[in-house]
């Protein structure tokens, strides 16, 4: 293939975006994932408006409506579609608000880790030599330890809190991106268009930003999608273990944990429904991620 000059860019060229959209429309499973994900994100965003109750407002809670099974109503006629917990909190509302915390942690930690990893990976790829070797050695060591362990230790040092969980998860994840960016950038760097840009004596920063970066994005997007799901699971697990978010801002993991004791006495709903919400969120992200990998991976194109 000859390198097409930007001037003669044919209008018929299949852009990655177009291929992406077509690929998605082709797969029913991926569409299902996308629709589910949209549903999850919107219900989390709109929680204050669609939730029947503000689960954080303690004055609204009535201990008399505690541990109601799903579908039952309290004495005031409020229906608890998914039941209530021991404090009389409506579980549906708690799940919607919990989803907000979970998604906030998942997306923001991923975004931060992505930014850090991008910069470090680019530096490693572009600097090469000793800098590169040192950075990659560090990445290797970090990646040889399970994320959950590192996050646990960090939180043991940092303490509880939504912000701290985000910091810990970002610290756990950056290495994935750094490695992905570096390998993508190294491949791109050897390509002719970068050499051409270098021959034109374009400034280094411009080459990196305008030429290298956009071409490194596809693999990053794939990794990031999967990592969001991973981060949400990790947060839930950490909160379950009692080192994650505080009781005042319960995430899905926290809700599940608080229902654990009731589960043994047969009051399943306090744990099971938040778990299902978590499962739907993660499955939908994974489905979308799987499809993205197929669409964006040029090796799988036939």
């Amino acid at each position: 293939m000859t390198a097409a000059s930007p001037v003669s860019a044919a209008p018929k060229v299949e852009t990655p975006l177009k291929r992406f959209v077509v690929g998605f429309l082709d797969s029913r499973v991926a569409m299902l994932g996308l629709v589910l994900l949209a549903l999850v994100v919107f219900s989390a965003l709109l929680a204050p408006w669609i939730a029947p109750q503000d689960p954080y407002d303690l004055s609204k809670l009535d201990i008399m409506s505690g541990m109601l099974p799903p579908g039952s109503a309290d004495m005031d006629g409020n229906v608890f579609w998914l039941g209530s917990d021991e404090q009389g909190r409506d579980l549906l509302s708690a799940i919607l608000y919990g989803l907000r915390t979970s998604l906030l942690v998942g997306f923001s930690s991923t975004a931060i880790a992505l930014a850090i990893g991008l910069v470090i990976g680019m530096v490693a790829a572009y600097a090469g030599g000793g800098t590169d070797a040192t950075i990659m050695r560090l990445v290797d060591i970090q990646l040889s330890f399970p994320a959950i362990l590192i996050a646990l230790i960090l939180l043991a040092v940092l303490g509880k809190g939504v912000d701290k969980v985000i910091v810990a998860l970002a610290a756990v994840q950056w290495a994935y991106y750094a490695r992905t960016v570096r390998s993508a950038a190294l491949v791109e760097r050897r390509k002719e268009y970068v050499e051409a840009a270098q021959c034109l004596a374009l400034p280094k920063g411009r080459i990196v930003l305008r030429h290298l970066l956009p071409n490194c994005l596809p693999p990053l997007i794939v990794v990031a999608t999967v990592q969001v799901a991973h981060a949400i699971t990790l947060e839930a697990t950490l909160s379950f273990l009692g080192v994650g978010v505080p009781v005042t801002e319960p995430s899905l993991g926290m809700l599940i944990a608080s229902g654990f004791d009731y589960m043994l006495s047969g009051e399943f709903w306090v744990s099971v429904f938040p778990g299902l919400a978590l499962l739907i969120t993660i499955v939908s992200i994974n489905l979308v991620g799987d499809q993205m990998r197929d669409v964006l991976n040029p090796r799988l194109q036939h």
């Binding site: 839930a236 599940i256 778990g275 499962l279 499955v283």
Partner: peptide
């Protein structure tokens, strides 16, 4: 795919609920 998506601790709880609490086959 489901196995990848299910959070470990939640599955653990479900296992306890199913096999220890409901069926009583195995200790929790």
């Amino acid at each position: 795919i489901l196995g990848f998506s299910l959070p470990t601790f939640w599955v653990g709880m479900l296992l306890i609920m199913a096999f220890a609490v409901s069926l009583g086959w195995l200790p929790a």
